[in-house]
Design a protein around this nucleic acid. Structure first.
Length: 692
DNA sequence: GATATACCGATGCGTTAAGG
DNA sequence: CCTTAACGCATCGGTATATC
């Protein structure tokens, strides 16, 4: 343990006193305790409310606690007991550590910062807020959520209030924050503040260097009466008899479940995958197609498709097929493209042209299915029948995509993409290295500036710290911009589309690659989850499937507070559907939750996990992926690979291997989710432009 | 692997109120 | 009124854990 200077120097009076103190473990009865007796709770004393936090964590409403007298102790308590910090079990409601005082407090007196960007997790206890900042935490909670926040930021719902902590406001006066700013800790300024009828923060506002009583600094308050005479230390010190300390195991943090928000869509998994595939194809091969930015953005919305977009898409797909088709097919295709180009945007007219084309070239040269039936309107769709909505043509477009990827043009573009990706990666690493070198030099310069002038008369410590922080932030922002720009480049050249992965409960995670948007959608626009490239989509049941292999993790989620929204009849309601996460912070929360519910359990269930490289991030294709078979197709859909990743393990693998692979896959998914959250945040922030 | 943060026990000194 | 007991507030330093 620490051998503080205080422990080695001559023991002062209070130390002697403390060492002779007999501590009694009092049961949590309202009639017995270690506090003092207040027959009628005095209103003048500032201590009584604070008694709520002490008495070894036992919360007592009225301090009717009997003061222990020496005579009583000598009779009742034969053994000495050291005073210890409140234990976890002393907080049945849960507990937290106050950023200001560092003490464990009951969760009921917690006020946590709700700042999102960057996410702040700092918590303060009511007492510290009152004493140090003059803030009334219960008032903050009473205020609740402003309506605009309520409607847009679902993650505030968890707290039920909005509050920016002193740390985020740069007004924190705790010892750590003061020292971080190069200032002395304030010491016990609360006493001074109370006498002045003020808060510590108010005192510091008047005098930033104001300090109170500091521990270990000797007599700091002039005694009002007579001098205290230090007594001789007693012969036996409690230190002499202390046994080797056994550190108690750290608290296991309960990871909160993210908020599951249903995506407002009627599309099933296959239909959505079609839309993902179509969008990814168009985005990937836009360099050899003629698709406007407007139409690229239209493709974000999976439930609809504008007629103009459908027309442009059809002409481009036919053009791609024509480029590598046999002469007679090519002629027919070109004629059809011309007819479509000169015609209107009516989807029924598009379909009529396609049927006519198929009749000309024959199904062996070009085949596609009939459109899907209309979801609205009364027309029953048959080949050549009525098409009321362009969205009905999606299966036709998918068939045309499959035809297009057989062509030499698309394959050449894939090869080009592979080369581009390698170049992009090389450029990225070179730029990142250059930036890191630049930062090392700048850091050195700043440090030298400090060591040269620190302690001098006119040295501005605060100014230097601010300068250092600003430089560091610039460095991090530059690196972040480089990384995300490269990520976008890699995505845009990825030869195939595949989901991020699958979790232990069978849910499949999808994200779209991103094109440069004209305008970042507003938060509520993204939260509405109509634009699929602006959120993480998850297909599956919210709760675990009945599979005993996976039910454990999911059922825990079911019991969590986050799920406690009174949705009865969940058994029937637990169908697979689309869930969406549009808030990067919620995605991070999801990743953390997945890591806690799946990885740990797999380890426990399947045995020790072997060391080894983590599974590769499936969501981010790398240069060495390029040159593969081509774009996603039904037959070669990597979805099947993902879906079966848990079950299709090699038969000759040992349970440990399988456990290792499962954990590895989960780690890869968690990593990919965190990376996507960062990337999405970067896009939302205007791709680094909005940062300082 | 380095750094930051969380957590915890030890310690100093002032305040409060019961009891002699 | 003085002494004593029991806190209350705050810092420090070490270690575990999380994050970069």
């Amino acid at each position: 343990m620490s051998s503080t200077p205080a422990s080695t120097k001559a023991t002062p009076l209070s130390s002697v006193k403390r060492k002779s103190i007999v501590y009694v473990d009092i049961p949590p009865s309202p009639l017995h305790g270690s506090g003092r007796m207040f027959p009628t709770p005095p209103t003048s004393t500032p201590l009584s409310p604070k008694a709520l936090f002490h008495n070894r964590g036992v919360i007592v409403d009225i301090p009717v606690l009997m003061k222990k007298r020496k005579s009583e102790d000598s009779e009742e308590v034969p053994a000495k007991k050291k005073k210890t910090a409140p234990k976890l079990q002393d907080f049945p409601n849960g507990s937290f550590n106050c950023h200001q005082c560092g003490k464990r407090r009951d969760i009921n007196v917690e006020l946590r910062c709700t700042r999102l960007f960057p996410r702040c997790k700092t918590k303060y206890c009511y007492t510290c807020l009152k004493n140090r900042y003059g803030q009334d935490a219960s008032e903050v909670k009473k205020r609740g959520l402003p309506m605009d926040i309520l409607s847009r930021q679902i993650n505030f719902l968890e707290c039920g209030y909005v509050w920016k902590c002193p740390k985020c406001s740069d007004t924190c006066n705790c010892s750590h924050c003061r020292k971080a700013k190069g200032l002395e800790p304030t010491g016990n300024l609360t006493l001074v503040a109370k006498k002045a009828g003020n808060s510590v923060a108010a005192l510091l506002a008047q005098n930033p260097n104001a300090t109170g009583i500091l521990p270990g600094k000797g007599q700091q308050v002039v005694p009002t009466k007579k001098e205290k005479v230090p007594k001789e230390p007693k012969a036996s010190s409690s230190k002499d008899t202390t046994e080797p300390k056994v550190r108690k195991p750290r608290k296991k943090v309960q990871v909160p479940e993210p908020t599951w928000v249903e995506v407002p869509t009627d599309l099933d998994r296959a239909e959505t995958e079609d839309r993902f595939m179509l969008r990814e194809f168009v985005l990937r091969f836009s360099p050899i197609m003629d698709i406007s930015a407007k139409h690229l953005e239209d493709l974000d919305e999976f439930d609809t498709m504008s007629d103009a977009c459908a027309k442009a898409l059809l002409m481009n797909l036919l053009g791609l097929i024509a480029a590598d088709a046999e002469p007679h097919v090519q002629t027919a295709l070109k004629r059809t493209i011309k007819k479509i180009s000169g015609g209107g945007i009516n989807p029924n007219a598009l379909w009529t042209n396609l049927v006519s084309l198929r009749d000309q070239v024959g199904p062996s040269s070009l085949s596609f299915p009939d459109p899907t039936p209309a979801t609205t309107g009364t027309l029953r769709t048959r080949a050549g029948g009525g098409i009321t909505q362009s969205v009905q043509l999606i299966p036709v477009f998918i068939a045309l995509v499959e035809a297009a990827i057989q062509g030499a043009s698309v394959r050449a573009e894939i090869e080009n993409g592979a080369k581009d990706m390698k170049d992009a990666n090389r450029d990225y690493f070179a730029a990142a290295r250059e930036e890191n070198e630049r930062w090392v030099a700048e850091k050195k310069e700043l440090t030298e500036e400090k060591t040269g002038k620190e302690g001098n008369e006119g040295w501005d410590a605060d100014g230097w710290t601010a300068k250092y922080k600003a430089s560091y932030k610039r460095h991090k922002t530059t690196l972040e911009n480089l990384e995300h720009a490269n990520e976008r480049k890699l995505q845009s050249n990825a030869p195939r589309f595949q989901p991020l992965g699958k979790d232990a409960d069978g849910r499949i995670y999808y994200v779209s690659s991103a094109h440069t948007p004209k305008k970042v959608p507003a938060a509520d626009d993204r939260a509405s989850m109509k634009k699929w490239s602006w959120f993480l989509a998850v297909w599956g049941r919210r709760k675990a499937e009945d599979d005993p292999e996976t039910s454990k993790a999911g059922s825990r989620g079911t019991d969590s507070a986050a799920n406690d929204d009174g949705d009865e009849g969940d058994q029937d309601d637990n169908e697979a559907r689309w869930w969406g996460f549009s808030d990067p912070m919620e995605i991070k929360k999801l990743a953390k939750w997945l890591a806690s519910t799946s990885i740990g359990e797999t380890k426990e269930k399947d045995g020790r996990v072997k060391d080894g490289k983590e599974g590769r991030d499936k969501g981010h294709a790398h240069a060495d992926d390029a040159g593969g078979d081509g774009f996603l197709t039904r037959a070669s859909s990597p979805l099947s690979d993902v879906s079966d990743s848990g079950e299709k393990m090699d038969m000759d693998k040992t349970p440990v291997d399988i456990a290792g692979q499962k954990v590895s896959n989960m780690k890869a998914l968690v990593k990919a989710l965190n990376e996507y959250a960062d990337f999405l945040q970067w896009r939302v922030d205007g791709e680094g432009k909005g940062k300082n």
